[in-house]
C-alpha cells in the first residue's frame, strides 16, 4: 500500500528548474532514500511534499489525500526535518518540543518529551537552552521534533549532517528501529551514498531535478552497478583490447590496475577476452557500491 504518491511534479525558481517532472511512490514500511548531489532538487522535493512551497504542476498524494492548504490534518501524520535543524535558541530542548507538540495539536505530555529526548540521546540536556547546543545535538533534537508527535511518515533531509561517526551510527540504528519496531515509513534524503545504501530498501536518484533511477536499492546495485578492479600484467594492452571489444568504461587506475565499470554479467566475458589475448590477471576485486553507480549516472 502506498503512503505517498508523487506524479509529474514540477517546480522552478525563476529560470532554475529545481524539480523537473518527478514521479515516485513510497510504500508503507519503506525506508525510502532520495539520493542526489547538492542542488539536485532533494530539499525542494521535500519542501513540496510538506507544502512549504507550491508546485508549478503535478500532484502529491499522501494516504490517498492530495497535499494542499486545506488538508491540514494530513500533516499530523507527517514529521519532518528539513535541511538545518533550526529551533528557538532562547528556549530549552523540552520547551521547543512542547511547542512543536502544541503546533501538532497533541497534548504536550512531559513523559513523551522525555522519552523522545532519551531516544535521541539528549535526556541530560532537556532543560538546557538550545543556543548552547552543538550542531550534532541540534541535529538529534531535529530528529526528535520530527518524531515527537508519533507520525506515520517521517521525512528527514540529510539527517546525518553535523554528526560524528558515532552519532551517524546511532541515528541510523534509531531510524532502523523506528521502521522495524514501530512500523514508521521513512523518507530519507542524503548525498552520502553509503548512508542510503546501508539503511534504505528503496531509493530514487535525482539529478538536476529529474529522476534518474528508482527502485529497490539492492536490485539497482545488482542490475546496473558493477565496478571491478583488475590487476593485470599489461595495463595499456588490456585497455586497448577491451575498448576495441566494446567496453568503453574501462580506465587505468595505476601501472598495474584497471577499473571496469560494467554490468555484473559482463565480468566473466572481460576475463575471457584478457586471458585469450595472453594478458595475465593477478587479481579481480569487485568494487560494487552505490557510490560508483551514482557517479556513473550523474
Amino acid at each position: 500500500m502506498s503512503v505517498l504518491e508523487v506524479t509529474g511534479l514540477y517546480k522552478s525558481f525563476g529560470e532554475i528548474q529545481a524539480v523537473d517532472g518527478l514521479s515516485f511512490k513510497v510504500n508503507q514500511g519503506d525506508i525510502y532514500g532520495l539520493l542526489g548531489v547538492n542542488g539536485s532538487g532533494k530539499s525542494t522535493t521535500i519542501r513540496l511534499l510538506l507544502n512549504l512551497i507550491r508546485p508549478d504542476a503535478g500532484q502529491i498524494v499522501i494516504s490517498g489525500k492530495p497535499v494542499n492548504n486545506h488538508n491540514l490534518t494530513l500533516r499530523k501524520k507527517m514529521g519532518a526535518l528539513i535541511e538545518r535543524p533550526d529551533f528557538y535558541p532562547y528556549l530549552t530542548a523540552c520547551k521547543n518540543l512542547e511547542i512543536m507538540l502544541k503546533y501538532s495539536r497533541v497534548r504536550p505530555e512531559r513523559a513523551r518529551i522525555l522519552e523522545v529526548l532519551k531516544l535521541v540521546g539528549l535526556e541530560k540536556f532537556k532543560d538546557k537552552k538550545v543556543k548552547i547546543f552543538s550542531q550534532g545535538m541540534k541535529q538529534r533534537l531535529g530528529i526528535a521534533q520530527a518524531m515527537i508527535h508519533d507520525p506515520e511518515l517521517i521525512i528527514l533531509d540529510e539527517p546525518a549532517n553535523g554528526l560524528d561517526p558515532h552519532g551517524m551510527v546511532d541515528i541510523r540504528n534509531l531510524l532502523i528501529r523506528l521502521n522495524q519496531d514501530y512500523g514508521k515509513t521513512i523518507i530519507l534524503s542524503s548525498h552520502i551514498l553509503r548512508e542510503i545504501e546501508k539503511i534504505a530498501n528503496r531509493m530514487l536518484i535525482i539529478h538536476a531535478g529529474k529522476a534518474i533511477a528508482e527502485g529497490d536499492v539492492q536490485e539497482l546495485i545488482q542490475t546496473y552497478e558493477s565496478s571491478v578492479r583488475m590487476q593485470v600484467s599489461d595495463v595499456n594492452k588490456a585497455l586497448k583490447i577491451l575498448k576495441s571489444g566494446g567496453f568503453e568504461h574501462v580506465t587505468a587506475k595505476n601501472d598495474h590496475e584497471i577499473i571496469c565499470h560494467v554490468k555484473e554479467h559482463e565480468v566473466p566475458e572481460i576475463n575471457r577476452i584478457l586471458v585469450k589475448n595472453q594478458i595475465n590477471i593477478m587479481a579481480i576485486v569487485p568494487e560494487k557500491n552505490l557510490e560508483d553507480y551514482f557517479i556513473s549516472l550523474t
Binding site: 507544502n51 512549504l52 500533516r75 519532518a80 528539513i82 533550526d86 503546533y103
Partner: peptide, 15 residues
C-alpha cells in the same frame, strides 16, 4: 530568517 517556519509550517497549522 531563523528557519523555524520550516518546522512550524510542516505541522497542521493554518498559515
Amino acid at each position: 530568517s531563523a528557519g523555524t517556519f520550516r518546522m512550524v509550517l510542516s505541522r497542521p497549522v493554518s498559515r
